[in-house]
Design a protein around this nucleic acid. Structure first.
Lengths: 196, 196, 196, 196
DNA sequence: CATGAATGAGTGTTCATTCAT
DNA sequence: TATGAATGAACACTCATTCAT
């Protein structure tokens, strides 16, 4: 009987080691050796769980996104769910600032790397779809002012999210949580139909 | 008798070659040899103009920023100059989309690189100062609504600029010039004192 | 209670897997993992049947030779048995062309590898002994012309065998079976005493 | 002005170092590091002269062949030139036994390596063409018995050459020069038209 | 006996940097 | 100044081998 190993957990621990190395030393210094050392195993072990470094890196990017989306409250609807989703994605606490650092590190890797650009584009599309669906739902429920251009709002929130991720990564003292929340709420207030 | 060379022009051509290589192949693939080849010179020549690769890269980042700020019309004042400055910084045409790609490439390099973070922070501070000064000038002239928080607007424009740069780099088909301009104008409209 | 396994049969199946991998991918690409996969078992199983890769490889070479010599008709004597033996050794059909490919692959491994050279030398000595014994028997029976130098004929047949093995391995379209047979028969005709 | 280097000579010295390492340690142990050490330079220098190891190895094979063919006397014609060419190709002295060892090492590498097979096939074709042309010339001059099948003789000499190369590589004590020469002469005697 | 996860030395290759010319 | 050959450390990756299960 072979050694019992939880394959997914092992991948997960390697991906988290990758995140830590990227955040601490930069993606340019994230070597397979360093990642293995950070994960507390030998360098050869990476080959068991990832075809090569590119697959490890791509998985690390996807996993960072997945973690952000993992904890949505399915009970919310309409504009409240738009707000909740945005607040989940923003770097509001230490953990998500950490993930924002990882995220920003991948942006520069994607330039000139069609495979990563494509992967990233799919992720962006997913992000925007989730926002859009929630906004459309809010519109159906009459929560939005009638002149709101949903696509423009999707775009504005997307730009807001990326800009705040960068600030969290490179200017961590700026953009405290309240300021981020205020920017989101300002957008939502502008599109919300005036109450009775 | 040494060859007559314009030292600054040579540095400039190496920096532009660096930009092109970064934009085309990605910053991870931007080697000194590749940059020298792109510039049409031998690899050793870099040593004459830059202490090492780190200095070349830092110079390339600063030069990209400098180009953006180079063509401001000093005649404008108040809110009009805020608008003009933002429109200069945004990736509205092919040249500035190209520079945005370069810019985004540097963000990921800065993570985990204190020297580059510091340099980048200075640049950001400069950008924000120029916005802030213009906004304060507009306030003094009574162009702003009295309840406007200048610092919050600086922050909002800064986030907007970074988010749009990323979109230009990784989703070039999104965010056409008009949409970018509209986002800036929306911010300015919100803070502008209602006219007579 | 240990699983019942035919030890020799298992070794045999691993050796045949080794042959297939060598013939298909080249000896430089014949890894223990690849051989285990080809044999349909895990990589660790090799350790139960072979001390290490060198022993597996040496066994594979010896087994390839053994297969060629396995099917000699003991009823033949004299020159006829020389001819039969040569025709058994030559790459006359697909199976023996396959074994010739394996054989040629080992030649290059033996260079600079004293252990393998020695093993190979023993095999060559066996091959030549069998030819020599048969020729001497033919001489005793008066089948050879009186001026024949048996050792020189052994050498000529040996050279012929190796040269044809190489052609089978690297130029499979050349040297069809009839041509190979003709070359052997030409040698035998030259040494055969003129009939009555 | 750059360091003055004879590019071809440098390639040559690296190829000769490759030959020595292959002959001494075997092609499986011929690493780029070992070759560089044998050549007395750093490992990185190989990249200046060969795209990769495969190109180095292919060049080493071609160069070994080229050396053999380099010293033909253009004055000879007919059967005498066939003999001379064969005697140039055979491993008759220490230098050519050395090259034969290199040659044999490549045979096993070619198996399962289409690129190398193709390269080798071209070399074989060249060898056979040179033999064939000389034989046809001899036939035109009436030096051959009228029933000689030129293609069969080409084949026989080819097989002879390869078989003797292998013996020189793996059984260096066998096949002294006189015996090799005798085998060639036996073939030539059989095809030579009886003199007046 | 068999598994396959783990090891870690070794490989081919890349690359920033140095320096004789 | 400029060249490009040379260096050698560092890289991602491979692989024979070991061993807990």
């Amino acid at each position: 009987m072979p050694k019992i190993v939880d394959h997914d957990e092992r991948r997960r621990s390697l991906i988290e080691a990758t995140w830590r190395v990227i955040a601490r030393e930069g993606i340019a210094s994230a070597t397979t050796r360093g990642i293995a050392r950070e994960a507390g195993c030998s360098s050869g072990v990476l080959a068991h769980y990832f075809a090569d470094k590119a697959e490890l890196m791509a998985s690390a990017m996807l996993a960072a996104h997945a973690e952000v989306h993992a904890r949505l409250d399915p009970g919310l609807t309409g504009l409240a769910s738009v707000r909740q989703y945005m607040l989940e994605c923003l770097p509001l606490d230490a953990r998500r600032r950490f993930l924002a650092v990882v995220e920003v590190s991948f942006w520069g890797q994607a330039v000139g790397n069609p495979r990563l650009v494509e992967l990233y584009a799919d992720e962006v599309q997913g992000f925007r779809s989730r926002i859009r669906t929630r906004l459309e739902h809010a519109a159906e429920r009459g929560e939005l002012r009638p002149d709101v251009d949903v696509e423009a709002v999707v775009h504005e929130l997307h730009v807001l999210n990326d800009g705040l991720s960068l600030q969290a990564a490179l200017s961590p003292h700026r953009a405290p949580a309240e300021q981020q929340t205020a920017l989101v709420d300002a957008v939502l207030d502008r599109i919300r139909r005036a109450g009775p």
